[in-house]
Write a protein that binds this DNA or RNA. Structure first.
Lengths: 342, 342
DNA sequence: ATTAGCACTCTTGCTTTTTGAGTGCTAAAA
DNA sequence: TTTTAGCACTCAAAAAGCAAGAGTGCTAAT
């Protein structure tokens, strides 16, 4: 597939990089100045013309310069781009930005997304650590009033959710006791995905005293367990999208698409490589056809646990962003591993 | 100040209402058709001309109809607008929208804001219940690993915050015990605003064993107490602003302004009336000069506890939105009161 | 105090012109 | 065969011009 002549590679690469920098189509003269090649502009024009025919470049209209096509970006990312280390500056920013949230995995991921988004002027979607085997570690029921209590649920990946719930009857010591019995026998140590409405109902029914007292509590447990799954997706810095004139008013549509949340998990999950770049129309969703997505997985304790994805215009600075994403997933993985395993 | 003739009032009122409806400037003929007055268009023109001179109306350009000026809106809101009940439909929507979050004050406010924003196509900023006298009701420290524990803090207004924290040494029973001692004696029952870094440090120093073990925990308590204050502001439905063509591209700037969060508390606090309308340039911030803000306070157990504010274009439907806001603050206040006091 | 009539002003939408960057092609040169 | 100079051609974007229409403000009559 790498059948391009060296000169073509040089030209393609220059077009991509310059276009990323300026956003303007590149003409033959400009290109000449840029690369410092010692041929005439006519020669360059011929080469560009061929690159167009091959599908790597395209022109907005007949009398304009060239811009990279989707295929052009792809070739650039796969073959031409240098594999840089992360900028010193970016590294510092990332470290400074996330250090404050070091101990708390959920906050850490949220913070990391925020920092990365700010740094790259992209939107960031990420998943809190989790994966297949989230098990419930601990449940506490803290009485708040006579009829209400705060239910707190803690999972093996260090995520905590809470919810205030109201009882129909008074919250007696007996009820508390029975609640903890059920919890200890049927919930603790189980995967969160196993907690279903029916399993909770049968558990509640097995209780000595009034089982109806237990129901609202069990329902709340279910709801929390469920929300563990749902709320894993975190969106950060989505308003950065407005700063790119590439999108124009389309930014609004994209913004609203991202804010729907539901489709996002499909966007960043289901990659096989540790880092993947999806360019333009390669995306599943029409709404992303002018965007590129860079996703990387992070792993906790040696196993894949979540991923962090960046969304920005196709014309994004791949060469500098990719190392940042790589670095971030790396460090975040290490930090969470450290926080959880003692 | 109510020195306008009846006819002028009728005209001003019609201009405001029609402009709110269509967004187009109103000409003399259209106005005539609208009000059904039995005079000629020339007369109406004279009246409009006077209203312009008085500052209640203005024209985008010489040959266009009139639109309300800021002063015009102000007069309309203060004197002309009918004091309606909330629409049956809106009431239903609100009730349906917030019922699911009934038990949990923080979620309730967030949800209420979301619903109100959706209903009115405005952005909604609100403050979670709190006010001066938030006291700390309960603190739990749930061990997670040997070196880390989840700190959970619950306040009198039903808000719960949690944070995972790491210790430098092992988390022994002794440390737990001493921690709870400090908590019981120095923290529980105190207002959150009293929890300062120094008071925590002295508390930690008073402990038998290694006081350094306690420090990270105390720091975390501080941080949580502080975050009670900071995170009270909730922003909802801000992307609705994009649906108003009034803002044009200015919507982006406004959106970014709102997303900064910091200035928002100044926007919705500091009102004296139970419900206040701030129109256009009356706002403190330049970024809001084309917006109006409707703020209402809600009270929990008889005392002011927080507020809910709507932000939309100056050309918003005051007459129908105001009753909705009034109703929502009312019902939210009642619900939280019920949830907290048993 | 109203009203009819009319001249005047400006936006809006449309078409036309101009300009300039950039190409593609051809024919000559290397 | 590859490169280059030269030139005609294309097309978007900016500028300029034009016609229509809505709406006003003023004046003089009612």
């Amino acid at each position: 597939m790498s059948e391009l002549s060296e000169r073509k590679k040089l030209i393609l690469s220059a077009v991509v990089e310059q276009y990323i920098k300026t956003g303007e189509p590149i003409g033959s003269k400009e290109l000449l100045a840029l690369t410092g090649m010692s041929v005439s502009s006519a020669t360059v024009r011929n080469e560009m013309s061929e690159l167009s025919a091959m599908g790597y470049l395209e022109q907005p209209h007949t009398s304009a310069g060239r811009v990279p096509s989707q295929k052009g970006y792809r070739y650039y990312v796969d073959n031409l781009m240098k594999d840089r280390e992360i900028d010193e500056l970016n590294r510092r920013m990332i470290e400074a930005g996330i250090s404050s949230a070091a101990g708390d995995p959920e906050r850490l991921i949220a913070q990391a997304g925020e920092v990365l988004a700010e740094l790259t002027k992209c939107a960031c979607i990420s998943t809190a650590p989790g994966g297949d085997a989230v098990i419930i570690r601990k449940i506490e029921l803290v009485p708040v009033g006579i009829h209400s209590a705060m239910l707190v649920l803690l999972t093996s990946n260090g995520i905590l959710k809470s919810r205030l719930c109201r009882l129909d009857c008074e919250l007696t010591v007996k009820i508390l006791e029975e609640f903890y019995n059920i919890v200890d026998s049927c919930i603790i140590g189980k995967p969160a995905s196993d907690i279903s409405v029916v399993s909770m109902q049968t558990a509640a029914a097995s209780v000595d005293s009034d089982p109806f007292a237990m129901l609202p509590l069990m329902a709340a447990v279910c709801e929390l367990a469920r929300s563990m799954e749902d709320s894993r997706i975190i969106l950060g810095g989505s308003s950065n999208l407005f700063s790119h004139k590439d999108y124009g008013v389309g930014a609004i549509e994209l913004f609203e698409f991202l804010n729907k949340r539901e489709p996002l998990s499909a966007v960043i999950s289901g990659i096989k490589e540790p880092l993947d770049v999806i360019i333009g129309k390669e995306n599943l969703y029409r709404q992303l056809e002018n965007s590129s997505v860079i996703v990387a997985k992070y792993s906790v304790g040696g196993r894949d646990s979540g991923s962090i994805g960046l969304i920005g215009p196709t014309r994004m600075d791949y060469e500098s962003i990719i190392p940042s994403v790589k670095y971030l997933t790396d460090i975040v993985g290490r930090m969470i591993t450290q926080a959880i395993e003692e």
